[in-house]
Design a protein around this nucleic acid. Structure first.
Lengths: 199, 199, 199, 199
DNA sequence: CGTTAAGCGAGACGGTACGTCGTGTCTTTGT
DNA sequence: ACAAAGACACGACGTACCGTCTCGCTTAACG
C-alpha cells in the first residue's frame, strides 16, 4: 500500500530493490511534519530532509504531496476495535464519540478537506481516498448490520445512508459550521437516526 | 459584500473613487476561470489578466484567492425562493433535489473542500465561509420551523441538527464516497430524518 | 589506455576479468552521443544505456565524463602520417590544412573548450589532456626539426613556440572569433611564422 | 549591455521599471563568487542569495549562467590604456606582459574555456563572447596599425592574423600545455611575429 | 570440482542545481 | 487616491545528473 508501483509477486525485478527503510522514514517524517506544520505547510523538501532521503526517492514512490499524505494516514489508522455491546446506540456512541476529541477534530479539519479538494481533480487520489474512508466506516457498518439481525432496526434500512448521515453531519459541522462538535451533538444525531430507522 | 472596506456612508473619501466596473470584471473573470481550470488551477495573475486589471486592484479589495472565490460565489447564488407547499417533505425535496444536478455537484465538489481546507487555517475566511453557508441554509431552516408550527414535527427538534444531517450526508457522499448522489438518495435521506423527528 | 587501472603484467588478478567488449561498447556510445548531443548534453546514464552497460561498469574504468570523452577521442585519432616532403611549408600545410574541414572544426570547437574548462579544475584530467595534445603535436614537431637539420630555419628556433603560434592562432579563431578558418588563413599563418624563423 | 532586453529608447514602457540596483548587486555577486568558487561552482541560487535578489529577477534579465558571467566580466574590464611608445615591440610587450600574472592566468584559464564551450552551442552567447573578445583586441590592433603607418612593418600585413598568433599562442599554452607562460615566452612570441611581418 | 572474488546489467540511493511558477508587495506613469 | 503594468523577494515545485550502493547473476582461476 505504501509503495503502489512495487511488484507484489515473488518475481524479483532486476536492479537494486527499493529500500523499505526509506518508505518507513518518509512516512514517519510526513506524520511528524503534518503535526508540526499542517497540510498546507508541508513541503516535499522538508519531508526529504527530515527522512534523510533524496527528493527523487519520494517522487519515485508517490506522485505528489496528497498521495503521500494519504498513505501516511493509512499507516496511522489504529485499527478501531469494532465494539459489540449488544445495543446499537451504545455501539455507535463508542464509535463516534472519539470524534469529539479536539485533537481528532483538528487533524480531520486540516487534512480531509485538502484531500477531498485534490481528489476532486485527481481520480487516482480519489480512489485511494475512497478506500481509506471505507476502512474507517467498517465498524459502524458492522454494528448496524448486527442490529438488523437482532431486530433492533428496520430490516429495509440502507446501512450506508445511515453512516453517511452520521459521519457526514459531524464532518459538515467541523468543516463549515464552526460550531463545536461535542458529545451532546453526537448523541443527538445518533438518537435522531435511530428513531428514523426503528422497526 | 464584494468590497468590504468601501465606505458606505455618503461621505466622499479623497482621491479617485474605485471603479465599480473593476469589481464586476474581476468577479466575472473568477467565475469563468473557476469553470475552466478549477479552484486549484486558479491564479490571481490569470484573474487580473482576464479582467484587464492590475493585480494590486484585486489585492486592494480582497485578501487572497479564497476570499475572492467566496465573493464570486456569493454573487452567483441565485436567491433560492423558499418553498412553502404546506408539507415539509415536499419543501425539503424542492430544496435538496437541485443538488442532484451534475453541474451543481461538480462545482460543489471542486470548490467547497478547497475553501474548507483554507478556512481551517485562515479564521477570517472561516467567518466568511460560515456566513455564506448560513445563507444557503435559510430555506431549509424556515421550512422546518414552519412544520414545527404546524405540529408536523416534534417541537423539541434541533433544527440545525436536521440540516446538518441532510446537507452533511449529501456533501459527505460527494466529497469522499464517489457514490453518485441521485434523487433517490436525497429522498431516502429526507424520509429517514422526517421519521426521526416525527412528533 | 582505455582502462587505466587494469593490471598490465601477466599476473592474473582473482575474480572475473573485465569484459573488453564493455570498453568498446562504451567508447563507441560516447563517440556516437558526442556527435548527436555534444559534450554538454552527454550524460553518463545515456552512455550506459546506449552501450547496454551498467553505470558502475563505466565508473569502474573511468573517473568521470571528461576522462571518458578524452579516451574516446584518443581512440578516434587516426594516426596522422607525418609528412616528409623535404619542404617545411609543404609539410606544415599538409598538417594544418585538414583543420579547415568543417567537421574537424565542429568537433574541435565543441569538445576542446569543454575539456580545457574541466582540466582547469581537475589536475588528473589536465594530465591526460596534456598528453593527448602532445600526441597531436608530434607531426609538426618532427617536420620543424627536420627543417632545422636541413638549414631551412634558424637553428635557435623554439620549436614548441612555433607550434603554439600555429595551432593556438587557429584554435583561438575557432573558439572566440567566429571568423571562419579557411585554407587561406592557415597558409598565411604558416607563411608568417616561416618568415619569423627564417635563418 | 547588462540588461539586454531593456528598451534603450526614450519611450517609457508601462509598469514598474527594472531596478538598476538589482543589476548592480547581481553582477557584483557574480564577480565575488567567481573569485571564491570559480565558474563550475557558481550557482544561480548563490548569486541570488548573495545579491539579496530573487532568482526570477536574474532569469528575467539573463538566459543562464554563462550570459550572466559574460556580462559580469564585461563590467570588470578595466579599459586597458592603449600604449603608444613609438615602438611596436614595446607597445606589444606592455599589452601582453600582464598576461604573465598568475591571477590573470587563473581567471583566463577558468573562465574562457567554459564560455567558449557554451558559445559553441549557444549562438546568442557566441555573439556576446565575440564582442567581448573584440574589445580586448583593440589596443593591439591600434598599436600594429600605427606601426604600419610608421613603416615599421610590412604594409600588407594582416593585422588580425598577428593578434590571433600572439593571443592564441598564449591562451593555447594556458589551456592545453600546462607549460607556464612567463614574460620570456611572451617576448619570444612577439619577436618571432615581428620578424615575420618586418618590411 | 567447488570455492572465491571480482565483473556484470539494472536501477535505487542521497545530493544538488536547475528553471518555472505563484504569492503578495512595491514602484512606475497616467488619470 | 486609484488605475494598469509589471518588477520585486521569497520559496516550493518537479526534473535531471551525478557518483555510489545494492541486488542476483556470471565468469574465470585457484585450491
Amino acid at each position: 500500500m505504501a509503495a503502489p508501483v512495487v511488484a507484489k509477486s515473488g518475481v524479483r525485478l532486476p536492479g537494486r530493490p527499493r529500500d523499505p527503510r526509506a518508505d518507513a522514514a518518509i512516512l514517519t517524517a510526513v506524520v511528524e511534519l503534518l503535526a508540526e506544520v499542517g497540510f498546507g505547510g508541508l513541503t516535499v523538501d522538508a519531508v526529504a530532509h527530515r527522512a534523510g532521503v533524496g527528493k527523487a526517492t519520494i517522487y519515485r514512490r508517490w506522485d505528489g504531496k496528497e498521495q503521500l499524505v494519504l498513505d501516511a494516514l493509512s499507516t496511522e489508522v489504529q485499527l478501531m476495535a469494532t465494539p459489540d455491546t449488544g445495543d446499537l446506540a451504545t455501539d455507535l456512541r463508542q464509535i463516534y464519540e472519539p470524534m469529539a476529541e479536539p485533537v481528532a477534530q483538528q487533524s480531520a479539519t486540516r487534512l480531509m478537506p485538502a484531500l477531498a479538494a485534490e481528489a476532486a481533480v485527481n481520480p487516482e487520489l480519489a480512489d485511494r481516498l475512497r478506500s481509506f474512508v471505507a476502512m474507517r466506516r467498517g465498524a459502524a457498518k458492522d454494528a448496524i448490520q448486527r442490529a438488523i439481525g437482532r431486530g433492533e432496526v428496520d430490516p429495509s434500512t440502507d446501512v450506508d445512508l445511515c453512516i453517511d448521515l452520521l459521519t457526514g453531519s459531524l464532518l459538515y459541522r467541523l468543516f463549515f459550521s464552526g460550531a463545536d462538535v461535542g458529545i451532546d451533538v453526537i448523541q443527538q444525531a445518533i438518537a435522531l437516526v435511530l428513531r428514523g430507522i426503528a422497526p
